[in-house]
């Protein structure tokens, strides 16, 4: 077992060492107050963006600008969940309650059952 133990310990040490040396490099700044605008276009069965990743800072204000050819509903899978109803028309603006907890949060079209954007909250 000693040999196994040593090998395992080496592995853990390598991982921890590299983790600590890389530590902090993924922390992007503090709170950004600049509003992130996400432009969404719904046309028939197509939505743009199509599931793209968008990076936002924790707590950063987010605004959705929706242009659609038919009414529908957007769900934001934050905790707690947020829902927005839009109508047919151009440039309808919705403010999200800022998301404070880091993680991946999906913004989905409830109507078309598609993911529009994955927010990468950091």
């Amino acid at each position: 077992m000693t040999r196994v133990g040593k090998l395992a310990a080496t592995g853990i040490a390598v991982v921890l060492g590299l983790a600590l040396s890389g530590c902090g490099s993924d922390d992007t700044g503090g709170a950004t107050t600049e509003t992130k605008t996400i432009v969404i276009t719904v046309s028939g069965d197509t939505i743009t963006p199509n599931g793209d990743r968008i990076e936002v800072a924790a707590g950063q204000p987010i605004e959705l600008v929706v242009t659609a050819d038919a009414p529908g509903e957007i769900h934001v899978h934050s905790t707690p969940e947020q829902e927005f109803e839009y109508v047919a028309g151009n440039d309808q603006k919705f403010d999200l309650t800022p998301i404070d907890r880091p993680g991946i949060v999906d913004i989905e079209s409830h109507t078309l059952e598609k993911t529009i954007v994955q927010l990468e909250v950091r």
């Binding site: 890389g22 993924d26 934050s78 998301i99 907890r101 880091p102 993680g103 991946i104 909250v121 950091r122």
Partner: peptide, 9 residues
């Protein structure tokens, strides 16, 4: 479940 983990660096 709601929000998911960020990817590992």
């Amino acid at each position: 479940g709601g929000a998911k983990d960020l990817p590992i660096p």
